[in-house]
Nucleic acid binder design. Structure first.
Length: 519
DNA sequence: CAGTAGGAGATAT
DNA sequence: ATATCTCCTACTG
């Protein structure tokens, strides 16, 4: 399933995957433009009507070539012509891909603005298409094998997702689970040999091809329906996050993994720590230059003058500050730095038992108060993934310009961080609920579907997904029984304490911080 | 029905 | 001691 989702990712994520292009077109263009795709195909290679015999007609066979083709075309043999004819979808060069959008300029987007997708877009479109490419080629000499393994470990698609709308090429009795994809190697169709076979058996005729088979294949969305997939149409990045969030999260984790690997490579090259907090000013300059070059951004001559901060201070700079200093590149650099921070912050989650012991070599560990939002992207899949069908990572990111410092606790003076040690052993952290809520609010790109600001200046926010917020709070406090009823009771305690107040117009799930706490 | 409001005892730190 | 957690009843839209 994961791979099939990836089929619906933009092709920038899927280099060397010519078979994705039809799907990409499918996702971004109306069906009547399939013909334009067909123009990129060497249609003379396809069987011509009415010679249908050797063409796979089952759903499984239809899927199989998509997998096999990548393997076949990944080799040294000739590249299919159409791969070169669609340069705008090439992904091996960053230059062809717009740099990742900075985090939404509106700091507090509505859920419809798809904050998670913004994050995803930053991962998937901007930067990591390239790294995916290199990773694939490095780590997997046999892409099809890797893909098959992925398919093998994926859970079966829900039965209700099968065959809602039978297509001419599918049958309800057939699904991937019953067809052992990974075992039946002969079922994988080598399209190259198939095409050669076709050429032998069906020498070109003068008959004008009508592209019927290709159209049928392209229009066959039964596979989508069976696996409950939604094409990643461009517009889905503008709205509708909530519907597809569940589909994205594994992809995000994949992207994050790639981010970390790529960061590793760059770190090795620049000889810097992966944790930006540990960078010296010189290393900051090296990273900035590297990133500028990476995204094809104009070099900055007075980088040393513009950025005299060390890495810790750099991470505290807001996007606005980046843009102010470097109008052309600041946004991209800031977004990239956020990704690095996330990738680094993800590490403890991989080794939860070392979370406390892990010394972030380059950064003093205890300069952030425990109850502060740490730039901490905690992708925790293991803890309650069994009973949590969302497979949602607990993702809490406090932006570097977060103002979650309205407290009488120590104000952080550096950008160094420490793990909050939330789930390591004995119980929850000391974080206060209001601080936790601000943590969530401070990361709209991640948590925007669960909680968001209504009026940032007035400290008014709305809990969009009470269950999710409560669940996150429960995890943070190691209170599995936490629910919104209890959480809201705790929030109401703040009325008396002057931390929160009732909003002027009572609205469900809308709360308001009192002044000093909203800053 | 889900959320709001608040009392009151229990519990973790 | 404090901040929640937990359970509860009453009320509201």
């Amino acid at each position: 399933m994961e791979y099939e989702k990836m089929l619906y990712m933009p092709s920038s994520e899927m280099p060397h995957s010519p078979q994705l292009k039809p799907l990409q077109f499918q996702a971004q263009t109306p069906p009547d433009q399939f013909a334009s795709y067909a123009d990129h195909f060497d249609l003379s290679l396809l069987p011509q009507d009415p010679a249908p015999a050797p063409i796979p007609t089952t759903v499984f066979q239809y899927n199989a070539p998509q997998i096999k083709v990548e393997c076949a075309w990944d080799g040294p043999q000739q590249q299919p012509q159409h791969q070169q004819q669609a340069p705008s979808y090439r992904t091996s060069s960053h230059q062809l891909i717009p740099p990742p959008p900075a985090y939404p300029h509106s700091a507090y987007p509505s859920p419809q603005s798809s904050p998670l997708q913004s994050e995803f877009a930053a991962y998937g479109f901007g930067k990591f298409g390239g790294s995916y490419d290199s990773l694939n080629s490095l780590s997997s000499p046999s892409p099809s094998l890797e893909i098959k393994q992925e398919l093998h470990i994926l859970p079966p698609s829900p039965p209700e997702s099968n065959c809602e709308t039978p297509s001419p090429r599918s049958s309800c009795g057939e699904n991937i689970k019953t067809e052992p994809l990974d075992a039946d190697i002969e079922s994988l169709i080598d399209l190259n040999s198939l095409l050669q076979h076709q050429n032998i058996q069906s020498p070109p005729t003068d008959t004008k091809p009508d592209h019927q088979l290709l159209r049928e294949c392209l229009e066959d969305t039964s596979f989508q329906k069976r696996h409950n997939l939604k094409p990643l149409a461009l517009e889905s990045f503008i709205g509708g996050l909530a519907e597809v969030r569940g589909d994205f999260e594994p992809v995000i984790s994949l992207a994050l993994e790639h981010a970390k690997r790529e960061a590793d490579a760059i770190c090795a090259e620049l000889q810097i720590s992966q944790d930006p907090n540990g960078w010296s000013p010189v290393q900051v300059h090296a990273w900035l230059r590297s990133t500028l070059a990476q995204f094809g951004l104009p070099p900055v001559t007075d980088l040393e003058l513009q950025f005299c901060e060390n890495g810790a201070a750099l991470t505290l700079l807001s996007e606005e500050e980046f843009v102010r200093r470097m109008p052309e590149s600041g946004s991209t650099l800031h977004a990239q730095l956020e990704i690095w921070k996330m990738a680094y912050a993800d590490q403890p989650a991989q080794q939860p038992h070392q979370q406390n012991q892990q010394s972030h070599q380059s950064a003093p560990a205890d300069l952030w108060p425990a109850n502060f939002g740490i730039p901490n992207l905690d992708m925790d899949y293991n803890e309650d993934s069994e009973d949590d069908d969302e497979m949602e990572p607990e993702v809490v990111v406090t932006p570097i310009n977060s103002s979650a410092t309205a407290t009488n606790t120590t104000t952080p003076t550096t950008g160094t961080k420490r793990s909050n040690g939330t789930r390591t052993g004995g119980g929850g952290s000391h974080i206060h609920l209001w601080q936790f809520l601000k943590e969530l609010l401070a990361a709209p790109q991640v948590n925007g579907t669960a909680i968001r600001w209504i009026d940032r200046s007035k400290g008014i926010f709305k809990i969009e997904d009470s269950v999710r917020v409560a669940k996150l709070w429960g995890r943070r406090k190691n209170r599995p029984a936490m629910n919104y009823d209890k959480l809201s009771r705790s929030i109401r305690q703040y009325y008396k304490k002057g931390i929160m107040k009732k909003t002027e117009r009572s609205q469900r799930l809308v709360y308001q911080f009192c002044h000093p706490y909203s800053q």
